[in-house]
Design a protein around this nucleic acid. Structure first.
Length: 260
DNA sequence: ATGGTGGCCCGGCCA
């Protein structure tokens, strides 16, 4: 079973690439972030023609998350149950082939002195509270998406440059750590403790070509899913403007989890 | 130190 998380940076801009990618990579479950659309433009029919069901949570041209599956899709939950969400479509869950799959889009934070940064920390608290409340760590669960947090220096192409900046602060890391403390495992870092495993590169200039990236997209597994892990890998081709047609990739690469 | 790109709906916001 192959489960992927991918921040597509607008589904309207990336719909064709998504459909091609699902088939070429034999994706069973895709967790998407930043669909940036309502249900109107969401490609439900095109996905169905390829054998995929989909659940989408998008209200306007900001944020938006989705679960796409060709191995079943049940018990869809949009937003947090605990708080009825903090207003933006940043989380959706569905059960696919027995695995509770959560697609999360953590607020960016903008900068540490911006009110959006406090919102980011609150949102991470809320995510941990929700996972605790539903007992996600005690069943087969995968919480994956764009966390907008790099947990250690290894997650930054230039850790000095990012020190105490957005994505690298102790507060943000503590926010994500709450999930690890519940029993979740950061699959990419556990499997590859010394590789950068970058998932995002700024569009600007030659950042991708120079591999100046960050690892801010995470796949966090409950012990039950962790025990089933075969491999986890970053699909860099899908981020490479020289490898995709048209040459307009998302700024994030998919993170792909293979489990048995 | 700055500005470089891309996506959104229409010059500025957000990544």
């Amino acid at each position: 079973m192959r489960i992927a998380t991918w921040n597509v940076n607008s589904l309207r801009a990336r719909s064709d690439q998504l459909l091609t990618w699902l088939i070429e990579r034999s994706i069973d479950v895709a967790l998407l972030q930043e669909t940036k659309c309502t249900d109107g433009p969401f490609p439900f029919d095109e996905l169905a023609a390829l054998g995929y069901e989909a659940a989408h949570h998008g209200v306007n041209h900001w944020n938006g998350v989705a679960v796409i599956s060709r191995c079943g899709l049940q018990d869809v939950q949009r937003g947090f149950v605990t708080t009825d969400e903090i207003g933006e479509p940043r989380v959706i869950a569905a059960t696919c082939a027995g695995v509770r799959c959560w697609s999360v889009y953590v607020p960016n934070g903008r900068s540490v002195d911006d009110p959006h940064f406090a919102y980011k920390l609150r949102w991470l608290d809320e995510l941990a509270a929700e996972m605790n409340r539903v007992g996600a760590a005690n069943r087969a669960s995968l919480v994956a998406g764009d966390f907008n947090v790099g947990m250690t220096d290894l997650d930054f192409y230039d850790a000095k440059r990012w020190k105490n900046k957005k994505h690298a602060t102790a507060e943000e890391r503590a926010g994500v750590q709450q999930l690890l403390d519940l029993g979740f495992v950061d699959l990419a870092r556990d499997r590859y403790p010394k590789d950068p495993m970058f998932t995002w590169w700024n569009y600007v200039g030659t950042q991708f070509a120079k591999d100046k990236g960050l690892r801010i997209d995470l796949a966090l597994a409950s012990p039950e899913v962790f025990a089933r892990l075969e491999d986890i890998w970053v699909d860099r081709h899908t981020r490479d403007p020289l490898a995709v047609e048209p040459a307009k990739p998302s700024d994030h690469a998919p993170l792909i989890v293979d489990v048995h």
